[in-house]
Amino acid sequence: MGVHLITGAGSGIGAAVAGVLTERGEDLWLLARDEARAEELRSRFPGSRTLAADLAEPTTLAAALGKQELPERLDSLMHVAGTLEPGTVADLDPAVWQGMLAVNCVAPAELTRVVLPALRAAAGRVVFVNSGAGLHAPPGLGGYAASKFALRALAESLRAEEYRNGVRVTTVFPGEVDTPMQARLHGALGLPYDPDICLAAESVAAALVGVLDFPADGTLSELTIRPGC
């Protein structure tokens, strides 16, 4: 049985991953933005433990987590949480850019830094759920894509830095996934939304669990998942 810290377990891919690992009897630590949300997660995933900290305020993460019990060993840290605000470069306000960069890149970097001793102790894995927008920046999603390109850079540096400590790092790039975020994005862009042509959150979760189960003699450095054939 492993010990896993997951962000974004409240919905979509994160909830699907937490569900699979709960069924397997794994030891889950779930990050919530506040105590009310943490209580919801504990109710939804029986036996899980929670930490409360706001990813939108990455400079407060170390202090917030320092006041709580942290796991001494972590077999994985799974960065699933993210935020998306569509808009063109001509229209996006600097605060929107900063908000996406904070949640999608700076907070994962800080959370990783805080729990690195536990990851090193277990020779654990760090899994970053990125996006197709982290490989190709589409129009109208420049701010989001920039945050995801930055997240890929974070993963690459971390992989090289922590190799000697036995910590393995994987970035997963899903295409369109049937999640509440995807539905909101289509609505904001005025596009029709068809969940049948998207990846299911459960399919992406199966790939993420597969990363955790990959033999210890190798690393899945990057994994791209596309809908359909």
Rank of each mutant, 00 (worst) to 15 (best):
L21H: 04
A155L: 01
L116Y: 15
G166T: 08
A62C: 08
G124Y: 14
D54P: 04
D93R: 12
T179K: 03
V89L: 13
L116K: 11
L208T: 02
E72T: 12
A53V: 05
G82C: 10
R120K: 13
A95Y: 07
R184D: 00
S157E: 08
L208H: 01
L84S: 00
C198S: 06
R113D: 01
G25N: 11
E110V: 15
A122M: 06
H186V: 00
T219M: 07
G143D: 00
E39A: 15
T224C: 02
A9I: 08
L151A: 08
C198Q: 04
R184K: 14
L101Q: 08
V3C: 12
Y144D: 00
A137D: 01
L220S: 05
A160C: 02
E110G: 03
S157Q: 06
E35Y: 12
L70F: 09
S48P: 01
L189R: 06
N130M: 04
E222V: 02
L189Q: 07
C198F: 11
A90L: 10
L70C: 05
V169E: 10
M78F: 13
P94H: 12
I6T: 01
T60A: 15
G143M: 05
D213H: 11
T179L: 02
A150K: 07
A32P: 04
R37D: 13
D178S: 00
A118D: 06
R152W: 06
A52Q: 07
V17M: 08
A64I: 08
E110K: 12
G166M: 05
R113Y: 13
P58F: 15
A188S: 12
A153N: 12
V103G: 06
R42F: 13
T60R: 14
L116P: 04
P58L: 11
Y193T: 03
P94I: 11
E176Q: 02
P180I: 08
G2S: 15
V103D: 01
P139E: 15
W97N: 01
E40Q: 15
R44F: 09
A18K: 01
L65M: 11
L30V: 06
R159Q: 03
E176M: 01
I225D: 00
A56C: 06
E39S: 13
M1C: 09
A146D: 05
T170H: 09
R113L: 15
T112D: 11
E57M: 10
L61Y: 07
Q182R: 13
L154N: 06
R24M: 09
L212Y: 05
H186I: 00
A206C: 04
A9P: 02
E85Q: 08
M181T: 06
G140D: 13
L31P: 03
G12N: 04
V115G: 12
A146I: 05
G82H: 04
G166P: 08
T59E: 15
P192Q: 13
V126F: 07
P215N: 05
T224F: 00
P195G: 09
L51D: 01
L55S: 08
A81V: 06
G2I: 15
S11F: 07
V17Y: 06
S11A: 15
